[in-house]
Design a protein around this nucleic acid. Structure first.
Length: 501
RNA sequence: UCCCCGAUAGCUCAAUUGGUAGAGCGAGCGGCUGUUAACCGCUAGGUCGUAGGUUCGAGCCCUACUCGGGGAGCCA
């Protein structure tokens, strides 16, 4: 048996092959049937002509339910009418498991229903495309660091000290000792960087933030590089090369998935080096400027214009429906379009409602505050390539960030904002490498210096300038794929208020 | 934690001003030799989230609760 994956069919035209897969869609049409088969590598249309197969088999296939598993054997041929340009002319088939009443039909479903059925939903086209892209992103991440002299160091998930804020820790009972789940591998990584020079860790990260938004998960994957002997400009260059390489890899390896998802490929192709570099102080000036005021007003006008267009279309469809006399298929198409319009209108309403609030927040922005999500969105919307924001106020940032020795009120940190309104995908900094400075910061935060003894040690024995950053995998995937919600970018999402499977 | 919206068939949604609960998909049966989320005909499928209240009468109005969605704050 000449078994092939669907992806290899184009190079096997004229040959008899066997495909192992699942039934994605079934369209019987009298004496000919079209089975859409998926095998994990792709989709293939299989044609069954009654005259060419056994009668019993023909009847059996005709009634085969969605997601039944089967192997089909037949001749591969070019066929312009088939999606993909190739099809299999079936001569024989073996059914492994007949599925009936598969819950996820080829129609719209609500998100709650899909997440309750996530174990099955993973088989659908959209999650499949996103999963493939996620795989590429992760491979590109590993490749980038491995090819650039970094050593992988696996940092612990049970941790003894906090890296970010102590409120966001998941505490676990570790044989009577309270430990918490890692919210970063950074502190351990700094220690490893003093051994290997350039290191990275890659694994799940846990944050107990009470954030019920489309940008948050309580368990997400983060990659964190840490480099000895590096300064802030060096870190920005590293992050720039890194993100650029990820985008290029996805454009190269997953073009068809991006197309299926309706991702904005043109915008991804516009991502070129150098990225924009702004300081926090410059951002504060931009936010409070006339330019931003105008920009926000223009955004609002645009949203309202879009709303107008959609409302007009909706009214036209409703009028046509009321008039009656439409064919059934036309009615169904209208119903689908109306649903689409309504959900787009809801999205627009939210944007229209939020715009003045965000405009006011930006206009009233005071130096010293951390940038809010809306502020990041504004800056990100103003640029068509990623934006670095550097030198945040010391008071708004974590204790381990190195203060700028020429301006003690700010730290040598950066965030990277993905373009077109997506917002933050990376946060990083140069680390405080001076023992006394660090100790003072730990005390000021109210942490117990005893818990940080080993971390402080690193500043006693051959301390060097060093730094690193963390990139959130799901956020990166959401940005690249254009997926609106981060929960679609991981197979089994863990959200603040709900864990499904 | 706060604000807004929602819950009707297995799924996605309708139901005029409070007056007999509807459609598509899916399921079952039948038809069709080129379908593209196929199409056409027929059949089955409902305690309208839960508990109270107003009313001659409640899917629709009021109250509480449960669950879900979106947003704010915070962050990768």
């Amino acid at each position: 048996m000449n078994t092939k994956p669907i992806t290899e069919l184009a190079s096997n035209i004229g040959q008899e092959v066997t495909l192992n897969g699942w039934l994605y869609n079934n369209r019987p049409s009298g004496k000919v049937q079209f089975l859409m088969l998926r095998d994990g590598s792709g989709l293939c249309q299989c044609v069954i002509e009654q005259t060419k197969v056994d009668d019993m088999l023909f009847e059996q296939l005709k009634h085969l339910g969605q997601e039944s598993s089967l192997s089909v054997t037949g001749l591969v041929r070019e066929e312009p009418r088939s999606p993909g340009g190739v099809e299999l002319v079936v001569s024989d088939a073996h059914i492994h498991c007949e599925a009936t009443d598969y819950p996820i039909t080829p129609k719209e479903h609500g998100i709650d229903f899909l997440l309750k059925n996530r174990h099955l939903h993973l088989r659908s086209l959209r999650p499949w495309c996103i999963g493939r892209i996620r795989h590429t992103v992760i491979d590109a991440i590993r490749r980038f660091f491995n090819d650039n002299g970094f050593t992988l160091v696996d940092t612990p998930i049970f941790t003894t000290i906090a890296g970010e804020g102590e409120q966001t820790l998941f505490e676990v009972d570790y044989f009577g000792q309270p430990l918490h789940l890692a919210q970063t591998g950074q502190l351990y990584l700094e220690s490893a960087a003093m051994s290997f020079g350039k290191v990275y860790c890659f694994g799940p990260t846990f944050r107990a933030e009470k954030s019920k938004t489309r940008r948050h998960l309580t368990e997400f994957w983060m990659v964190e590089p840490e480099v000895a002997y590096i300064d802030l400009p060096g870190l920005l260059n590293l992050a720039e090369d890194f993100v650029f390489s990820i985008v290029q890899r996805v454009l190269k390896d997953n073009r068809s998935e991006l197309e299926t998802l309706g991702a904005d490929i043109a915008s991804l192709e516009q991502i070129q080096k150098p990225f924009v570099r702004l300081t926090y102080t410059e951002v504060a000036d931009i936010l409070t400027s006339e330019r931003t005021k105008t920009f926000m007003a223009e955004q609002l006008a645009q949203f309202q214009a879009e709303k107008q267009v959609l409302e007009t279309e909706l009214a036209e469809i409703e009028a046509a429906e009321a008039k009656g006399g439409l064919k059934k298929w036309k009615q169904e198409k209208n119903a689908r379009r109306m649903l689409e319009i309504r959900s787009e209108l809801v999205e627009l309403e939210v944007k229209i409602e939020n715009n003045p609030k965000h405009a006011r927040l930006a206009a009233d922005f005071q130096w010293g505050k951390d940038l809010g999500g809306s502020d990041e969105t504004i800056i990100s919307l103003m640029h068509d390539r990623p934006v670095f924001v550097t030198h945040y106020p010391k008071a708004a940032k974590a204790f381990y960030m190195k203060s700028d020795r020429t301006n003690d009120t700010v730290v040598e940190n950066f965030d990277l904002l993905a373009p077109a309104g997506f917002g933050e995908i990376i946060g990083g900094s140069v680390r405080e490498d001076d023992y006394e400075h660090l100790l003072a910061r730990i005390r000021k935060e109210g942490y117990n210096p005893d818990s940080y003894q080993w971390y402080l040690d690193l500043r006693k024995y051959g301390s060097v300038p060093h730094g690193g950053f963390g990139l959130g995998v799901e956020r990166t995937v959401a940005w690249i794929t254009g997926e609106k919600h981060i929960r679609q970018c991981i197979a089994y999402p863990r959200m603040m208020d709900k864990v499904y499977l």
